[in-house]
Design a protein around this nucleic acid. Structure first.
Length: 253
DNA sequence: AACATTCACAACCGCATTTAC
DNA sequence: CGTAAATGCGGTTGTGAATGT
């Protein structure tokens, strides 16, 4: 309750600021400023980036622009068939946890994956559903993830539902869109043409690990019911990691 | 040619969580 | 330890190009 009040106050202040902020699509000049500022000085805090780079944008907006478009690690290639299959598989495992899915897809952002899912995969699955194909509907897929969430929230074992059938593959090739003025880094005045670099992130949360190892205290046991979102995510992510390593091991055999 | 519709993607919004003080 | 600020996330909306009528 108190937290909510504070959030509202914070939002009101943000609204005041927003009146002075620029909104909408980023211009090449703004991109240039942001890119050059971050490459020279690093990020620091996003609100300071906006100010120091001379941008009339919120820190949030700068962060989003950098994360989703300007950072050099991003792949400018269209999403491949393999990547699409991976998205479908991971969505089935993780539900709509786009950031967790993106963490397993080098060069791809959560926003990109989310958009791709909503505009293409969802539709394709729906079409196949209507033509009587042998696959699970997107709704069913989503429901599975939600059911797992509900299960975990009541202290159930999240692993129980992770052995679902493998996701189906799709056939349609995806073509690169040219809807924006410079979707490709080659068109941008200052963006490097770099291949994506994958940086693996540590997945093990100490608390989640303790719980997994059976080191439950009385205080912790209350978490069984209201298992916090971040812990729950780490738990699921660890399990996905485990499944993936298992798959690698099997392939070696 | 003019307008309407569809589509893909970029960006915003509200909220939750994390971090800093 | 409490509070404010910063960050991160997912759902939703806005925008502009492509396509259809």
């Amino acid at each position: 309750m108190e937290r909510r009040k504070r959030a509202m106050v914070s939002d009101q202040l943000e609204q005041e600021d927003k009146k002075l902020m620029r909104k909408g699509l980023w211009s090449p000049d703004e991109d240039e400023r942001l890119y050059s500022h971050i490459t020279h000085y690093g990020v620091g805090t996003w609100s300071s980036v906006a100010e120091l780079a001379g941008l009339k944008r919120s820190g949030k907006s700068c962060r989003l622009r950098w994360m989703n478009y300007l950072q050099p690690d991003l792949s400018r290639e269209p999403i491949s068939k393999q990547e699409e299959d991976l998205i479908v598989s991971l969505q089935k495992l993780l539900g709509n946890r786009w950031s967790a899915i993106a963490a397993r897809m080098p060069g791809r952002t959560d926003n990109e994956i989310k958009n791709y899912w909503n505009s293409r995969i969802k539709k394709k699955l729906q079409q196949r559903m209507n033509t009587g194909g042998n696959y699970q509907s997107p709704l069913a897929v989503h429901q599975t993830a939600e059911e797992r969430d509900a299960d975990m929230n009541t202290g159930g074992n999240p692993k129980a539902d992770l052995y679902g059938q493998a996701a189906t593959t799709s056939e349609v090739q995806v073509h690169h869109s040219t809807t924006t003025s410079y979707n490709n880094s080659a068109d941008h005045p200052s963006l490097p043409h770099q291949l994506p670099l994958f940086t693996g992130q540590p997945l093990l949360d100490p608390n989640a690990a303790a719980i997994q190892n059976g080191e439950h205290t009385a205080a912790q046991s209350s978490l069984d019911v209201s298992f916090s979102k971040s812990h729950e995510r780490n738990f699921v992510e660890e399990y996905v990691e485990f499944l993936m390593s298992l798959s690698d091991d099997l392939q070696e055999i």
